[in-house]
């Protein structure tokens, strides 16, 4: 039987390397997945340009961060990006509204098949991707400034007297707080406000919504506002946490879509739950448990291999496998999304 200290150490170890990062990553995915699900349920297409839209919003935030830093407008201890998020959101909103006006609206008015709009969104995806790479270049960029940690692993160790440390990064705290705020506001908006209810009605039954006097243009407009906001926040938080590179953002499309489908396409709550299912699976399956079990098992049983279920390089594969499993077992997802 391991000592209490060892159990605690094992738990702290897991928290530091798996649970906290998974919570952070899950929160970032959740915001992106929420945006996809909103577009899906109101505009009725799977938006393949979501990941590249996130890259666009982040690119705007990075440019603005550079400008703010040069002007000396920063907040001590926290990343400047937080200060510029509202402005980046506004630019992304304008960008998405223009895309809607110039691209998607035509297909909406003409009642195009959903798959045609999906194809169009792939065109938009590549334009956005090209635009972002044109502006930012293809290299990785780190734009998180301010203090890197709220508290470091060492500070935690001295404070708790344990041999394992649980560090809390500024980017992690920022992500969790901001994501909570954003998701809370979106849900409040959808559940309690008149426009939010109109959006839900529109998503439920478009014809009946029109017969109730709901203005479709307003609903679409509001949707893009919400989507752009969520998209920018998700992108900036991901970038603060892991750095910005266009390719990495492009690859986010898979986990984001997996989250949406796992949760049930079209269900906002499903998108959030799905995002955490994906992030925790990814982290739990790719973590090497050797040290964790050293704490828990007697010396005689100590493992000699890494005890890693899947190589870290396959973390994106995890979301794909989960996606396939869900499609095989329950294509509606956890919260009964729309399957056909």
């Amino acid at each position: 039987m391991p000592s209490f200290d060892n159990i605690l150490n094992a738990f702290i170890l897991l928290s530091n390397f798996v649970l906290l990062p998974a919570l952070t990553y899950g929160a970032q995915l959740a915001l992106g997945a929420l945006a996809v699900t909103l577009v899906y349920s109101i505009l009725r297409f799977a938006n393949f340009s979501q990941a590249n839209n996130m890259a666009f919003g982040t690119a705007m935030a990075i440019l603005l961060t550079g400008f703010f830093q040069s002007q000396g407008w920063t907040i001590s201890g926290f990343p400047t990006a937080l200060l510029v998020i509202p402005l980046a959101i506004v630019i992304t909103i304008i960008c998405l509204l223009l895309t809607d006006r110039w691209v998607y609206r035509y297909y909406r008015i003409n009642n195009a098949k959903s798959i045609t709009v999906v194809m169009v969104s792939i065109g938009v995806m590549f334009i956005m991707g090209g635009l972002v790479q044109l502006i930012m270049g293809p290299e990785q960029q780190i734009f998180a400034d301010g203090a890197r940690f709220i508290w470091t692993a060492r500070e935690f160790k001295t404070f708790s007297g344990l041999s394992e440390g649980l560090a809390l990064k500024t980017s992690q705290l920022t992500t969790i707080l901001l994501a909570l705020l954003a998701v809370g506001l979106v849900f409040y908006f959808l559940q309690k406000t008149k426009v939010g209810k109109a959006m839900r009605a529109f998503s439920d039954n478009e014809d009946l919504a029109l017969l109730s006097g709901i203005n479709p243009d307003k609903v679409v407009f509001t949707t893009w506002l919400l989507v752009a906001t969520l998209t920018t926040i998700a992108g900036v938080l991901f970038g603060l946490d892991k750095g910005f590179s266009p390719l990495q953002y492009h690859l986010l499309l898979l986990p984001v879509f997996a989250a949406v489908i796992v949760g049930g396409i079209g269900s906002p709550l499903g998108a959030i739950v799905g995002a955490f299912v994906i992030s925790f699976s990814e982290m739990l399956l790719t973590y090497a448990y050797k040290k964790f079990f050293i704490y828990l098992l007697p010396t005689s049983l100590e493992p000699d291999s890494l005890l890693q279920l899947i190589g870290t390089e396959y973390k994106y594969a995890v979301s794909f496998v989960i996606l396939i499993i869900v499609l095989l077992i329950k294509p509606t997802g956890i919260f009964k999304g729309k399957v056909l």
């Binding site: 799977a46 690859l251 879509f257 489908i261 594969a317 794909f320 399957v339």
Partner: peptide, 22 residues
């Protein structure tokens, strides 16, 4: 299933195939 599931799944398998090859 939904017509866009094929799109998403084929997008996914392409990325996975390349991860494996790399």
């Amino acid at each position: 299933l939904r017509s866009d599931y094929l799109a998403i799944a084929s997008f996914g398998i392409a990325e996975i195939v390349l991860y494996i090859i790399k």
